[in-house]
Design a protein around this nucleic acid. Structure first.
Lengths: 230, 230
DNA sequence: GTCTATAGTGGGATAGAC
DNA sequence: GTCTATCCCACTATAGAC
């Protein structure tokens, strides 16, 4: 009962808000593809959306804010794709590999945009930073996804380390993204190779932690990863 | 015989170039401290240096270019300080720890500035990126420094891995810098703790690679690190 | 080759009227 | 919610002084 029924979008205030917003987002998405983040101007976004510049800023406090949604959507799409990609895979290294390749598939069309995005997100106090308080929901969703990846794997390892593995994999993914945005090989093949080479090593190292002599090192590593949690 | 003798700086063209350049750099350094990178405007730098805006752009092609020198100086100062900090230390983990703390000491006054700087440098095609062709001399100087750190240590490890250890440490340092710029604890104490906790683990893992069962994993890791070299 | 003065472009962001 | 007008800044352009 809270809101009046939103039927004719243009006539009714509740629907109009959504409509305008959606028009701005749609225009931004087009221009982002056509010109990239730096080439896309807020003036042009507003013009193509059929609103004034000031109105665009009424809905989005900054250009950063406007494109933030595209990154969030990528994360959601990836979480879905990752679940599917893991089906039937039981070893940790196969599952991690599949999830990372799924990300590369989803992210490929956004390669240029994400290059600009990481630069924005790398700023220490940026709300776009994966470590920022504003990113807490997205970060926890990502950690939840990596937890599922680990939980579905058969690897034996120290319980301390196993509890921190999702965070370690999340951090590794961030590092891979940094590598990927600078990867100019066709289809970002170099990053695919990196994933294919590094995931077996991760798997082997995790397996090694179940050896008696390694338990101490594994626990220390777990403590370390835990201590850098945002 | 190529140039006329440079004697009185203000009167003679050879010296004037240096003098003007230095004035601009000095003004930039002051303003950077007072207002930070974003708050510092090129107009104000020129004004404080007593030159025209156009003249500032005559010497520095962009605002980025102007502040690039500060980062380079930090690197040079660190290389010197690192050498001193390593004197008398023989274990790998002590040496790495000392070098990282030396960096934290040198970088502390630039903490806010470097926050803006990493954002600029994180852009994929930025010449400021540590992976860019323009950064090749700086990158090789850094790798040479880490090579000295490794060479002065008594650690036994697989030769393959030992050859890649400098690059691995350089990459680790980059990761620590990323952590440090976002570290708002007084004196960036959290980063110091991270260094103190992580360096013994690095030392222990390296020692473990001399075990027979680990040689394969060590070689694979070496191959991986080698393959991501810029 | 070094430098000034001035005018201008274009883009992110904001103020305040309606 | 929406607009118009405006600000500020990085950066460019130019024409000429020394």
């Amino acid at each position: 009962m809270a809101t009046e029924m939103p039927s004719a979008a243009t006539k009714n205030p509740q629907g109009r808000r959504e409509t305008t917003r959606a028009a701005i987002v749609a225009a931004a998405e087009e221009l982002l593809r056509e010109r990239g983040y730096d080439g896309m101007t807020m003036r042009e976004v507003a013009q193509r959306a059929g609103v004034s510049l000031g109105n665009a800023y009424y809905y989005f406090s900054s250009k950063e804010d406007l494109v933030h949604g595209f990154y969030e959507r990528l994360q959601r799409d990836h979480a879905r794709a990752a679940e599917e990609a893991c089906l039937g895979l039981t070893t940790l290294h196969e599952r991690v590999r599949a999830v990372l390749h799924a990300w590369l598939d989803e992210a490929a069309p956004l390669h240029d945009f994400l290059g600009s995005y990481v630069s924005l997100a790398a700023a220490p106090h940026s709300p776009l930073s994966p470590f920022s308080p504003q990113s807490t929901p997205a970060r926890e969703a990502a950690l939840a996804m990596w937890t599922q990846v680990v939980d579905g794997a058969s690897a034996r390892t120290s319980t301390r380390l196993r509890a921190e593995l999702p965070r370690l994999l999340w951090l590794s993914h961030l590092a891979i993204v940094m590598f990927w945005v600078s990867d100019t090989t066709p289809g970002q093949q170099r990053t695919r190779d990196l994933v294919d080479k590094s995931t077996p090593i991760i798997g082997r190292l995790v397996r090694l932690t179940s050896l008696p002599g390694m338990a101490r090192a594994a626990d220390d590593l777990a403590t370390l990863v835990q201590s850098i949690a945002p």
